[in-house]
Write a protein that binds this DNA or RNA. Structure first.
Lengths: 212, 212, 212, 212
DNA sequence: CATGAATGAGTTTTCATTCAT
DNA sequence: GATGAATGAAAACTCATTCAT
C-alpha cells in the first residue's frame, strides 16, 4: 500500500517535471506554477509538495541536462581523438541543449549547477590540453576562453531555439575553425583573469523569481 | 515630491529615462513602472506622461544607442582602412554597448530597432566586402555569419555587464582573429539561409512584455 | 482571513454574490471588485476565482431575478384571467424587482439578459392579446408600448429602491388604469416602430463597464 | 485691459461649458476633466479655475436647462388653455430635455436643482388644478403623481437619447391619454404621501463623483 | 499524499486634482 | 489668469504560495 502510494508519488513527480519542462520550453523561466499543474494533470499543491518553489523546479528540470552534459564530456574524453575533443564535446553539448529544450543559460544560474560547472571545468581543461598538444587548437587558448565560447554558444542555441538549428551550427563551426592554431602570434586582448571569470560565473544566478 | 515643471519637464523626462535605464540594466525588460518612478523620484503618472507604455520607454532608452551604433558604423566606414572595418566596428560597437549600460540584445527586439537593423545590414555588408577584398577576412564569411557574431557579442557584453570587460574583449579578439583567412577550405557547417536568419531576427521582437 | 474551503467554497461563492449584490445596490454597476471582496470577507482572488470579471458577476447576481421574472410571467399566464394578465405580471414583476434589491434596469444590459428578453416578449405579447380580447386593455396598445411601460416602471422601482414603495405602486396603478380602453380614438403619437425599439433595446447592453 | 481679460475669461468659461456639455452628452456624467479641457482648447487648470470640481461643472451645464424648464412652465401657464397645461408643459419639457442633450435625471440630483424643483412644483400644482377644473385631468391625480410622471419621462428621454424620439413621444402620449378622467373610481394604490416623495426627491443626489 | 480554494501583494494603467511657472 | 506637468490614489486583474479538507 505504502509502496503503491510511493510509486504514485514518483509518477506524479515525473509528470510535474515533464510538464514544467514543457512549460519552460514554451514560455521561458517564468512559466506559471498553475500552468505546470494543469499540464501535469495535478493540483498546484502537488507541484509544491515535490518542489518547494520555482527555483527548485528549474533545478530539477535542468538536472538531466547537467547529467547528460557530463556524460557527453566523458564520451568526448573517451572516444574523441586528441585534437578533436573540445570540438566534439562542444558540438554534442550544443546539440543536447537544443534537444533538451528546457535548459538554456538560465539553468546554469542555479546553485545546483555549480558542482557541474566544477566537474566540467576539469574535463574541458583536459580537452584543451590534449587538443593543444595535438596541435589542433591554438596554444594560447585559455580555460576562460573556452568557457566564454561555451557560454556564447549556449546563449545562441537558446536564442535560436524555435528557429533553424543551422544558425548555431554554422556559428559554432565558424568559431571552432577559428580556434585552430595559426592565428595572430598575440591576440588583441589579454587572457581573462581566472578569478574575474569565476566572479562572473558565480554572479549569474541573480533573480530568484526568474525575472531575466 | 519634486516640484519641477515646465522647463524642468525636460529634466524629468531625462530622469525617467535614466531611471528606466538603470531598472532595465538591473532587472531586465520587465522592470516595473513604479520602480522606474521611484528611482526617478517622480510619480508614476509622470512616467506615463512622458512614455505611453513600457515599450515606448524601452524604445526611448534604446534610441541613443541605436544612433550611436549607426554613427560608429559610419565612422568605421569612413576611417577604418579596408581590411579592418568589420573588426573596428565590432569593437567600437561592443564598447558602446558596454558603456551605454542599458541596451542589451533585448532592446533590439523593438519595432524601432528594425529600421536600424536594416541600415546596419548595409554597412556590415560593405565591411565584409571591403575586408574580404583586402584579404583580411575569410572569404566564406557571410552576412549572416557576421550577424551571428554581432549577436553573440551583444549577449556576452550584456551578460558580463557588471563584471570584467576583459571577458568580452578577449572573446571578441579571439573570434575576430579566427575570422581571418586561412581556416578550413570548407567549414563543417553550411552558410545560414538568409531567409532563415531573417525569420529568426524578426521573431525576436515578438513578446512585447519581455517574457522570456 | 476566512478558512472555509471545499464544501464551503459554495458558501464563499454565495457570500461574494451577496456582497456584490449589496455593492451593486449601493454604488451601481461600477462597484469595485476589492469592495466586493471586503464586503464578502474574502480576498480579491476569491472573487476572481468564482467570477472571471465584473460582467460575469453582474450576470450572476441578475440571474435569479431573470429566472424569477420568467416564473412570474408563467404564473400570470397560468393563473390570471384574461383581462388581468398584463397588470398581474407587471405588478408582480415590479414587486420582485423591488425585493430582489440588486437588479435594476442596468442588469438588463447584459448578454445574458437577451435570451430572457426574447422569452419575455412572447409572454407579454400573449398578455396583451388576451387582455385586449377581453376588452380590458386599449386595443391600440402595442408590444413596444408595453415594453416602454416595463422599462419606466423598472427605472422607477430602481430609483425609489431605498424609499417608499408606495411611489412606484401608485404610479403603476395610475398607468395601468390609463391603459384601459376608452382613451382617445387616436393617440397623439404613432406607435413605435418595432425595429426602432429593438435597436434601442439592443444598444442598452453596450457599455460593459457600466459607464453612463 | 482688465476688461479685455475679463471678457477672455468669460469666453473661456463658455467654451468649457460647451465642451463639458458635449462630453456629458457623449460619455455621461463621468466625462473626463481632461477631455473637457481638450474639447475646450484650454488647459485643465482653466477648467478648474472656473469650476471647483465636476459637480459644479455639471450644475453649470444643467443651469440653462433649468432656466428653460421654468420658462416652459411659464409659457404653459400663460399660453396653454386650462385643460391642456400639464400636457403642454410635459411635452415641451421632454422635448427640451431631449434637445438639451446634457441634463438627464442626473442633473436633477444637485443642490442647485432644489430651488428649481420648488418653483416647478408650484407651477405644476397650478397646471393640475386648472386642468382638473377643466375636466381634462382625472381629479384624483396628485402632485406626487405628476412628479412621478415627470420623473419617468425624464428617465425615458435620457435612456432613449441616442435613439428614436418616437419612443418617448409615444409613451408620453399614452400616459397623458391615460390621465384623462374616466378611469377607475378608485385607483389600485393610494396616493403617495407628499413627505415620502419629498424624502425621495431630496435623497437622489447620492454619489458626488457621478458614479451612478 | 493530493487537491484546489483562498489569499493578498504586486503590476499596469487611468485620472481627478493641485500648483509651479 | 492660463497652462499643463506632476502627483498619487484607485481600479482591475494576476499569480506564487499556503493550507484546510
Amino acid at each position: 500500500m505504502s509502496v503503491a502510494q510511493r510509486s504514485d508519488a514518483v509518477r506524479n513527480r515525473q509528470r510535474v517535471l515533464d510538464a514544467a519542462a514543457a512549460a519552460y520550453a514554451e514560455v521561458g523561466p517564468r512559466f506559471g506554477m498553475h500552468d505546470v499543474a494543469r499540464r501535469a494533470n495535478v493540483g498546484v499543491g502537488t507541484v509544491y509538495r515535490h518542489f518547494a518553489d520555482r527555483e527548485e523546479l528549474i533545478d530539477a528540470i535542468a538536472r538531466p541536462f547537467f547529467d547528460r552534459t557530463l556524460e557527453l564530456a566523458r564520451e568526448a574524453e573517451a572516444e574523441a581523438p586528441a585534437g578533436a575533443r573540445f570540438a566534439t564535446f562542444l558540438r554534442s553539448f550544443a546539440q543536447a541543449q537544443a534537444e533538451h529544450g528546457v535548459t538554456g543559460h538560465c539553468a546554469w544560474d542555479s546553485p545546483a549547477a555549480q558542482a557541474v560547472r566544477a566537474e566540467l571545468r576539469v574535463f574541458v581543461a583536459g580537452f584543451l590540453a590534449a587538443d593543444q598538444a595535438a596541435g589542433a587548437l591554438r596554444p594560447d587558448l585559455t580555460l576562460e576562453d573556452a568557457a566564454a565560447v561555451l557560454l556564447t554558444i549556449t546563449m545562441l542555441v537558446d536564442a535560436t531555439r524555435d528557429h533553424d538549428a543551422a544558425i548555431w551550427r554554422r556559428h559554432l563551426a565558424l568559431v571552432l575553425d577559428g580556434l585552430r592554431p595559426g592565428g595572430a602570434r598575440e591576440l588583441a586582448a589579454p587572457p581573462v583573469d581566472p578569478a574575474a571569470w569565476d566572479a562572473f560565473a558565480r554572479a549569474r544566478k541573480r533573480d530568484p523569481n526568474g525575472r531575466r
